[in-house]
Design a protein around this nucleic acid. Structure first.
Lengths: 267, 267
DNA sequence: CGGACTGTTGAAATATATCAATATTTGTGG
DNA sequence: CCACAAATATTGATATATTTCAACAGTCCG
């Protein structure tokens, strides 16, 4: 019972000193009301901490909810029949993990902590309730799903059709952009906790070739690397290498429903 | 003004003799009430017919709505910076086209009719109203988006990481499955109106290599081809070639909201 | 301190792209 | 219905990016 006690104490600590769920993804879509913020912050169960390499959820397991990522990096991966692993996405804080599996009896992907990570579980029933009570948040979740589709479409465009260097450029620019929104980029320099093997599984390349590609880009003066820090030296050149430009989603789409009136009091 | 008259008469004809929008995608998720069916059938503007090769909507154009596909095949494509074209998906009847662009100021993809096709436009404002009025349909649309994400994830798994033959097997099995739901498959034989170049743009292969791959599969006895008809001769072998199994979505997920009570009268 | 990951580099093998030429099909106007 | 042009399919020879295999050097972490 020893592990249990550690887990319980962690839960207790989280309940009293709960970290904040980053809402920048929602804020990019619309200005949230105070009630909406409160609802979203209270959505999940108490956040749980897991260590690097730990599995949060395994492909094929029954899945009856999603996970909110509070802190850290988490990968979403699938194993192909050939035995190869495919990483579909590297999730950053603020992402909602595992939503595609909501329509399946079992989880479609495996969620693994790339760094230490804090996540919070949200049962499907809770989401159902939110959908019925807050049509505006429902619409935003729908839009978030469409944004994820766009991301996947762009990934599809870069993988297979583009050269290794082009794919890599896109990957680095995407991270640069997403980490930038979290304030984790300084002078175009950021932490890349993924191993080269992971990057390979993400881009559809051999780890060996990932290495050669990165070294080549360093030699060309496109990037600098030191340990697990990367600096994008020549952003312009990287952008012109990338098969697609980074997308700018629309701010406050006109067709969002009005905020619901039912909150703690007025709105 | 000549084209206008043709267009107008077509609209009028459609208004009186409107074709049905295939709802099998929704029916796979939940049993629709009569009111829901009525709402969905009345959702779009009068359907419009377009001919093979015609463009329904171009990438970069302002997009303030989506398209329901009533009949025919439509491709969704993007042009990369390199000039290469990427086809993201071949849409079949019942699909909703262009939803990812709802979160963007301009369309993310170009919609082109692969065969003659009938589509109906749905302004974003109409969808907004539906979201607010029918939370259950909103939830189903959300789930449909998640299903599309799964499809894209699988496509990502097959493109770039799998061999040409494996990708092709998956592509053919996917069509076999989707066309089957529409009743367009007889004895594992179906029409494939896409050119080999299109298939190449879809799988990330050269048209030349698409040809070699198909011919190879014929020689191996996996498939048969005659004109633009394909027959999947050895389904078992194709399935074991495919990098991922075809997914079976969950029927009637328990967390769907209850149908709204407001029907033909009150709102 | 040592063992296990992780990164780096080289040489050979291979799947796919590219270039090019010819056959076949499809669509269109007479 | 035919004839003709354009689009599409087919096949061969060669080029190339990436993989695979293999060996070794760092680096992390208990």
């Amino acid at each position: 019972m020893l592990p249990e006690t550690g887990y319980m104490s962690l839960l207790k600590a989280a309940a009293t000193d709960r970290p904040e769920y980053p809402l920048h993804r929602f804020n990019a879509l619309a200005e949230l009301t105070r009630d909406e913020v409160r609802d979203l912050q209270a959505l999940g169960e108490p956040p749980v901490r897991c260590r690097r390499g730990e599995t949060i959820r395994t492909e094929g397991q029954p899945a009856d909810g999603i996970h909110l990522l509070y802190e850290g990096w988490v990968s979403s991966s699938v194993v192909l029949r050939s035995g190869k692993r495919l990483i579909q996405k590297l999730h950053l804080p603020g992402d909602m993990l595992g939503t595609p599996s909501m329509v399946l009896p079992a989880a479609a992907d495996t969620l693994t902590a790339v760094t230490g990570a804090t996540t919070s579980f949200v049962p499907n029933a809770t989401l159902q309730e939110l959908f019925a009570r807050r049509p505006r948040i429902a619409a935003m979740l729908f839009m978030a799903a469409q944004l994820e589709r766009l991301t996947l479409m762009d990934a599809l465009a870069s993988t297979g059709r583009a050269s290794a260097t082009e794919s890599m450029a896109r990957f680095l620019l995407d991270l640069h952009h997403r980490l930038g929104m979290l304030g984790a980029v300084e002078q175009d320099c950021f932490d890349l906790p993924a191993t080269q093997e992971m990057v390979g599984d993400l881009l559809g390349l051999t780890p060996v070739h990932v290495n050669r590609t990165l070294r080549g880009m360093v030699k060309q003066g496109l990037i600098e690397m030191k340990g697990r820090k990367v600096r994008l030296v020549d952003l312009a050149a990287l952008r012109s290498l990338s098969p697609l430009p980074v997308r700018k989603p629309l701010f406050e789409p006109s067709w969002l429903p009005a905020p619901s009136a039912n909150g703690s009091k007025a709105v």
